[in-house]
Design a protein around this nucleic acid. Sequence first.
DNA 1: AATATTATTTAGCCTCGCCTAAAATTCTTA
DNA 2: TAAGAATTTTAGGCGAGGCTAAATAATATT
Lengths: 224, 224
Amino acid sequence: MMQSIPTPSQADHLKGIYHLSQDADWVSTNDLAAHIQSRPASVTGMIKTLQLQGWVAHRAYHGVALTESGRRWALELVRSHRLWEVFLCERLGFDWHEVHDLAEQLEHVRGRELVERLDRYLGNPCWDPHGDPIPSASGEMPTRVRWISAAELPVGSRATVTGMHTVHDTFLRHLDALLVRPGLRFEVLNRSEFDGSAEVLYQDGKKFIWSVQTSENLYVQIIE
Amino acid sequence: MMQSIPTPSQADHLKGIYHLSQDADWVSTNDLAAHIQSRPASVTGMIKTLQLQGWVAHRAYHGVALTESGRRWALELVRSHRLWEVFLCERLGFDWHEVHDLAEQLEHVRGRELVERLDRYLGNPCWDPHGDPIPSASGEMPTRVRWISAAELPVGSRATVTGMHTVHDTFLRHLDALLVRPGLRFEVLNRSEFDGSAEVLYQDGKKFIWSVQTSENLYVQIIE
DNA sequence: AATATTATTTAGCCTCGCCTAAAATTCTTA
DNA sequence: TAAGAATTTTAGGCGAGGCTAAATAATATT
């Protein structure tokens, strides 16, 4: 029962738990279901399987957390996913916001050597096209200055987009419409007291309104 | 019911029917089951589904054949499979006999544009690393001099290995042990009356014995 | 032509992953 | 602190895709 490898569905759950674990120690059934587009009852069922495999610890009615071996699997999946995204963008010429779904499928391809060879072929990249870090084969994340969301920026400050929190297709398309992409430099001109939306001036002179949901999901680095 | 896309399992069946169709007009349940490592009863079940989708025609107790739309799917799968094999060998540096299982997974990744971009990226190759033809996007096969199996060669003739019939892992490993690969030049020194095995001299001076099963699965081109 | 052999299909069962509805538990708030 | 609200788990069911064993049809043999 130990030693097995996660099925695609199990992998999706592990990866979801991994991502949500960055906000809280114990991940709730509801949040996980929302994150992977499933239902709470289905998640509970899968968690039982994952627990039998030794990949998660489950405190009934309280939440789920990855064990050390679960974390290793999750990191391997994240690594595979992000390397494929680099391949799709840099080699095949896809746009950075088109690649998530394809990488979601490619990350499940299993075979000794595949990911390591891909990594070497791509030049051992540290960041994916969305600006997210790619863990090394041994599971270490490249370090970077602390994540700040655009919603935390004071009015008047200038910053660069370095990454984004969610990678759902709708969000990526939304950003595309706003002409937002990693590397964009901008200034916060104003923020509404009413709904938190921010008026933003891009370096090229264009002005856009970012909703509070948009700002919260954008990571930035302040320009001094 | 029409217009849908085959699941991985359905795709495997379609591809199997396609390959076996090269030997006979109607493919038998038993042969297909053996070819895709399944059971006759399971194949019958899947054939019913494929028939509902309009991808195969089934004459009960007589066999199954692809419809035009089934053939299109099969060719698309073959194309995707062989392009990924080229990628794995030429870009990632895998050996030609290691890539079949990985390509078997990669071929199922679906997404608009993916295969076309991969094709362009690889330089629109016509032949995969096993020497098999890669169909074009519109489903045409590159043409080549007629396939001849090594078992048809008269004693004394010299030839080059251009491809192989089966791509089962055991066969590929067997060939590896015999140092056989596409491009190998050799001469048939002798053929046993008893079991059909052939004594073969390679260009580099090495001598091997090829069983009749080995010879039958090797395609060659005669050197005048 | 009748029977034995082989191939194929049907019948019935299983697991996995998903669902909804109902029950159980925890959290919130009056 | 007790009732109501929200969350989570359990119970029960479904479809896809696989299996074995039994029944049926086709083929080969005498």
